[in-house]
């Protein structure tokens, strides 16, 4: 069992205008592809910047085991450099550097080495930025909105490249997105941030299996939701009701009353349910993470 590749303990980051991240404790198991989702301003970028050392936390700590490579949201590169010079930049600023692999990747993508970076297409620039991150043979790859501003073909290409690296080298990935459907087939771990607080962190399959969407007559709602919002082994994450019917996202065992119709939620539904109810949380005990 490998120890978590990233571990945050009581992490808090504040800017001049206030806390961007508060009391955030999570652990990412090694070898996973973790999706960091949440609305804009939820603290996704802040968490990533803290993890790669661009930000010093005000409280707590965040530790990466091994080397982290980071690609920022706008995929910054030196525009006046040629692609070959960008590789030299990477080689000169890193101890671990796999130049043959980088050259092979770029050749496979038909990106000319002598072209100035500023003259490449957006998709090609994203690929060069990713190539530099991968050539460092990192243990953790941190990608801030890797698919933003890319056309569908480039999105697919970037995702294929990341998944192939995961398959080949077993590296861990933390990638953020505010579009959940981008992540459904690629990620196996979910981290939800909302308003600077951690709301969900867990294995996607377990999360989906552990939640139910219940639909039933409105008068049944009371049998599930006690005074504290939960009853027995069921926790109501989010509920929406009309005059006669109630629909709820719940966590835990299915109810016994046969008038409920129950089904497993989709990833979209799960994420939306939590984001709509910021007070609900689904966090594992930290010990459980290393599985």
């Amino acid at each position: 069992m490998r120890p978590p590749v990233l571990e945050a303990t009581g992490l808090g980051v504040r800017y001049r205008r206030g806390w961007a991240l508060r009391d955030c404790s999570l652990a990412l198991p090694a070898g996973r592809v973790a999706a960091l989702v949440g609305p804009n301003g939820a603290g996704k970028t802040t968490l990533m910047h803290a993890a790669v050392g661009l930000l010093a936390p005000a409280r707590g700590s965040v530790v990466v085991r091994g080397q982290a490579a980071f690609v920022a949201q706008d995929k910054p590169l030196y525009e006046t450099f040629t692609v070959a010079e960008m590789l030299t930049f990477g080689r000169r600023t890193n101890l671990r550097w796999d130049q043959p692999a980088a050259l092979k990747r770029l050749a496979g993508l038909d990106i000319p080495l002598d072209r100035k970076v500023g003259r490449l297409s957006g998709g090609q620039q994203a690929q060069v930025a990713l190539t530099i991150a991968l050539a460092r043979t990192p243990d953790l790859l941190v990608l801030d909105e890797p698919l933003a501003n890319l056309d569908p073909v480039a999105r697919h290409d970037v995702m294929r490249a990341i998944m192939a690296e995961v398959a080949e080298h077993g590296l861990s990935v933390l990638l953020s997105s505010h579009v959940v459907s981008d992540l459904e087939e690629t990620c196996d771990w979910l981290v939800v941030l909302n308003g600077g607080r951690l709301q969900v962190s867990g294995d996607i399959e377990d999360l989906l299996a552990g939640h139910l969407v219940l639909t039933g007559p409105a008068e049944l709602a009371g049998t599930l939701t006690g005074a504290g919002g939960s009853m027995g082994r069921v926790q109501v994450v989010a509920a929406s009701r009309t005059a006669r019917q109630v629909r709820m996202l719940v966590r835990g065992e299915p109810p016994l009353d046969p008038r409920w119709r129950a089904r497993q939620p989709g990833l979209d539904e799960l994420v939306m349910g939590y984001l709509r109810s910021p007070e609900s949380v689904a966090l594992p005990g930290l010990a459980q993470v290393g599985r």
């Binding site: 996973r32 697919h156 995702m159 294929r160 998944m163 192939a164 995961v166 087939e185």
Partner: peptide
């Protein structure tokens, strides 16, 4: 995964 862009664990 290189052709489908899915998680290798799948």
């Amino acid at each position: 995964v290189e052709s489908l862009a899915i998680n290798p664990n799948t």
